[in-house]
């Protein structure tokens, strides 16, 4: 029995030493996951998302003029009245408007065309003599022009408030993350509201065989108060016998949906002429 106990003890000791040596704890290697930055944006931000350009220079001037700076001047000149008309802020918005992009491209082109009836050599000469405006690489924001007729507009009659409110216009300078300013576009929520109302009112023929033939594209022109400015124009046609029913129902829906008061006045330019697709497969798209 002694031999057995000795052998067993020796075996256990060996096992213990081996296990201590071999069961060294290795920490699990957790792969670090790249973090994804998440921003919470409002509906309006979402509808005004623009494709950014990575190689664009960061905007040098702040994209929107602050109202309060203009207001400070006003405090000295006209302290008494406190009108709260927003329209007077126009002057502030006017300041950073850059020269519109198309002008640059347009200028050099039409001139040689006009001179085509003349001799070509002459035109070439003139063109050589002329300084090339195309060399300009970037639109440089033009300093605000002083217009004596609009001097009244420079006076801000608003009470100075600490609001970083900006006008409806966004500057069009190419900037990091802002390839083209698309402010004051019809926001997604407004468009969705318009669609939702039309979807409620439209009754597409149920159980039609080829629903893709029942897609009705209608152009709607609206007045400022959200009413139809002109009869809706149907832009698609179809051979499906049910198409007529779908089209008529769509037009009825457009008439019955008036007034479209969910559309904001500020964005009138964008919704005065809209095309709406009535698609029975997804009710509405586009």
């Amino acid at each position: 029995m002694k031999a057995g106990v000795a052998i067993s003890l020796a075996g256990h000791a060996a096992l213990l030493i081996w296990s201590v040596w071999s069961f060294a704890v290795k920490p699990l290697e957790a792969k670090s996951v790249e973090s994804v930055p998440v921003d919470v944006i409002s509906e309006k931000d979402f509808s005004q998302i623009t494709a950014g350009q990575k190689n664009a220079k960061p905007a040098e001037t702040p994209p929107k003029p602050l109202v309060e700076k203009v207001a400070e001047k006003n405090k000295v000149e006209d302290p008494a009245p406190k009108p709260t008309e927003k329209k007077e802020v126009v002057a502030a918005q006017e300041a950073p408007t850059p020269p519109p992009q198309p002008k640059q491209d347009a200028k050099p082109d039409p001139k040689p065309e006009k001179k085509e009836p003349d001799q070509i050599a002459e035109a070439l000469k003139k063109e050589k003599a002329k300084p090339q405006p195309v060399e300009k690489k970037q639109p440089i924001p033009v300093p605000p022009k002083f217009d004596p007729m609009k001097i009244a507009a420079l006076l801000n009659k608003q009470e100075p408030k600490r609001v970083a409110a900006a006008g409806d216009q966004v500057n069009h300078n190419v900037s990091l993350g802002l390839s083209s300013g698309t402010a004051s576009t019809l926001s997604q929520s407004e468009l969705d509201a318009l669609r939702a109302r039309l979807a409620q009112l439209w009754n597409p023929p149920a159980g039609a065989k080829n629903p893709e033939q029942l897609v009705v594209l209608v152009r709607i022109q609206l007045t400022r108060d959200g009413k139809l400015a002109a009869p809706p124009v149907v832009l698609t046609s179809g051979t499906n016998p049910l198409f007529v029913a779908a089209r008529d129902s769509a037009i009825r829906a457009i008439f019955r949906g008036q007034p479209y008061d969910m559309l904001r006045q500020e964005t009138y330019e964008t919704w005065k002429d809209v095309e709406v697709t009535f698609d029975p497969r997804q009710m509405f798209g586009g």
Binding site: M1, A3, G4, V5, I7, S8, L9, H12
Partner: peptide
């Protein structure tokens, strides 16, 4: 349990012999 294990193996060795 460790003591039991030692005892079990001791008995096993003994019995095998």
């Amino acid at each position: 349990l460790v003591v039991c294990s030692v005892w079990v193996w001791a008995i096993a060795v003994d019995k095998i012999i």
